[in-house]
Structures are given as C-alpha cells and as structure tokens.
Design a protein around this nucleic acid. Structure first.
Lengths: 208, 208
DNA sequence: AGGATTGTATTACGATGATCATATAAAGCT
DNA sequence: AGCTTTATATGATCATCGTAATACAATCCT
C-alpha cells in the first residue's frame, strides 16, 4: 500500500533509531537486517528501499549516534567553566550508569575492538566520531589551561573508554565499580581537577 | 584411516594454535569452525571429535592464549627489578609492535568489546585472564613500593588496553603512534618510573 | 596376519542471514 | 471516480555456518 508522503522519512529515522540500540547491544556482526526492520514494526523485505546495504545502515547509524552524543555532551556541560565541564564529563563517562547502559552509551566503549575487522566506510565513520570527541576534550583542556591538551586528549579518552569496556566484562560488581572509581580519580588527578567536588552537581540529561 | 596414537593430541594442539590466531584476527563471531580446521590442514567434518562445540574451542583457546602470554611476560622481565619489569612491560604492551600484531597480542586489546555479547564460559575464561594479568601488574607494583597497588592495577591495565585498541582503529599512523607514546609516558609518570630510561634494554622475546 | 580400533573425510541437514524480484494496496493526482 | 505512484509485504535465492551421521583406511593389538 502507499503511505503518506512523509512516511518514508519517518521510517528511515525509525530504522536508524532501532539500529542505534541494536548496534551497541549486539555489535555489527550480530545485528541483523531483519531484526532492525522488526524493531521498527516492518518486515525484512523492504529494507533495501531505505539502505543500499547493511554496511550503509551501519555507517549512517554510527554517524547519527555520534552526532546525538555530541549534542548530549554539550547540553550536559552547558555554561560550566572548562574545568567543571571536564570533571563532569569524566564522571559521567566513567560512571556506573554509562557502564550499565551500553545500548545508549558511547560507541567507543561498545565497539572499539570490533573496528579493525569492519569495512572501510564504517571504520571511517567511527574514526570521525573518535576525533570529534577527542577534539572536544582537548578544547576543554586547553581552555582550562592544561598544557599539551591536544597530545593529552587521545590517551585520556582511550583510558576512559578502556576502563568502561573492561568494567563491562568484569562480572564482580564491586571490582567493576572500583575500576571505574579508581579510573575517575586517576584521570582527574592527572588533569589537576582534584580540588573539584562535583557531588550532587552532575546534571542528568535526557538521552534524547 | 587410523593415525599414530599421538596424532589426535597433536591435531588438538594444532587446532588450538590455529584458533588462537584467527580468534584475535577475526573475533569470536567471524571465526568459523571450518576455517580453523582448514588452517590445520583438515576438513571441517572432524571438528567434533576434538571439541564438543565452537564455544568449547573458543574457551579452551582463550585459556591457552592467556597461559602462553603469561609465560612470555615472565620471560620478558625475568631477573629485572620490579620497577624495570613494570617499565619494560608497559613499553612492550603499549608499543607499535603489539599494535601491529593483534593476532599474537593480548586478547584484552583484541576482544574486549566483544565480551559482553559472548557466552558465559567464554567470558569467564576471559575474565580469569584479565584478573591474572592484573594481579601480575599489582605484584610488580607492590614490590616496587607503589602504594595501593591492588587498586591501581586494573585502571592501569584498562588504560593500556584501551590505548592499544584505539590505536588500532586510528588510520593516521602518526596520530596512532603518538597516542601510544603519550600513553606510555603518562602511565610511567603515574607510577613514578620516569627516571628509568630503557632505550635498548627492551628484550625481544620470541612469541613462542 | 588379520581383526578391532579410531582419527579423519565425505556428505548432508537445518538454521540464519543478506539480498532481490515481484506483488499489493492505499494515497495522491487528474 | 479512476488511474498512477510507491512504501511495504511476500516469498525466493544463495551463501555461510554449526552440527552430526556415516564411511574409510591405516595403525595397533592379538
């Protein structure tokens, strides 16, 4: 049947939204075209009216995820001085809520070790997201007067993502919590943010 | 046909060895039973005479990899004082050679983000390996007189693994190298190892 | 030497998954 | 009202993969 003019656009967005969750939950290999269609209330056949391939879906999905993440980050630290922005973001990123919600979290933590095995375009989308996030961190660090911000941002991001990834594979809850806490304090110490006490200051921002 | 008595054991080991490479190259989902058999010069049919399932192969393979890694690590730092052992291992782990040889490298860097999606037994084998490596690091740190060694080791390991993983997804070689270098100096600084200059001291140890 | 044993090959089955051709039915236009 | 358009459904194809049953042939043992 024919649908109203805007239906295709809406379906396209719905597919991306469904894929965004599934991609981070199951990874690119275990995400199935049929599953994404089903999640949007459709059957698998029509998929290729929306995306020319599974790879195209994955690539577009990743771009959407990173873009949405970026907006969320900026809302989270809006109006905060750079040092507070840094500390706030670190506490969020290396936090239990993020660990426990991979489906809505940062793709770096959910997909990092998959990337070397993925097709070029998909990897490129990932890399663009990594760079953008790293640049955001570097910007805050520079504004906060931290030396060598550009050089320091990537290892810091890697340390944060590594900790969250590892915390998800550790089944001992207490050990996992401690890994996160210890990573937060370690990184904030390295950035000279130990004087900040953000307890109660962390803003909850809707994941939309 | 019937083979000499020891043939089955040898084949079993050959399968594990083949799987050890493929697992880290392609990940658990893209590793195929037939591919592993082919790598050992056999056809896929006989697989279930050696392993009761693909999962069993993966679990056993991971245990073998971690055990071999452990032996290699101890050979690498044999006889070194703890601070040198730490610095040596950090330089190796967060190094270009390790980044460029995922197939023979640490499974944490190659498989971390796959783990939350894997079956329990496989995950357990991974976790045991992580714990063992973390304990080794903590041991060196304690002997080196570093405070809070047990609490510090997991975040350090996570930071190292995160950096190596991320360095593999960054296509810009220079940026990738810099991420590694910057991670090494950052971690060694945190552990108070900046006075050590190991240039030329790093021992090359065969990957066997 | 000859029969029992056994590691591997052959072959097949069933499931899953990506992709695509065709059908359908309702919306929009004339 | 009827014709055209088009987003989605149906159904099929082809490949891959995990698993398993059966066949075979050479070694080991008696």
């Amino acid at each position: 049947m024919r649908y109203a003019d805007h239906h295709k656009d809406e379906t396209h967005k719905a597919l991306l939204k469904a894929a965004a969750t599934v991609l981070r939950e199951k990874g690119p290999d275990r995400l199935g075209v049929a599953e994404v269609m089903r999640a949007a209330g459709l059957t698998h056949g029509g998929f290729y009216a929306h995306f020319k391939s599974k790879e195209a879906l994955l690539t577009e999905t990743l771009a959407v995820i990173f873009a949405k993440s970026k907006r969320r980050v900026h809302r989270m630290v809006e109006g905060l001085p750079p040092r507070h922005a840094l500390a706030t973001y670190i506490d969020f990123y290396v936090g239990q809520a993020h660990r426990d919600d991979a489906a809505n979290g940062c793709p770096i933590t959910a997909l990092n070790s998959d990337m070397p095995r993925q097709p070029k375009k998909f990897r490129a989308a990932f890399e663009a997201g990594v760079r953008s996030l790293s640049d955001t961190l570097a910007g805050w660090m520079r504004e906060a007067g931290i030396a060598d911000a550009e050089r320091l941002a990537p290892p810091i991001l890697a340390a944060m993502a590594g900790a969250v990834s590892l915390s998800r594979t550790i089944s001992d809850r207490e050990l996992s919590d401690e890994l996160l806490a210890s990573t937060r304090t370690g990184i904030k110490a390295r950035l000279g943010l130990t004087d900040l006490n953000l307890a109660g200051e962390i803003r909850l921002v809707s994941s939309q």
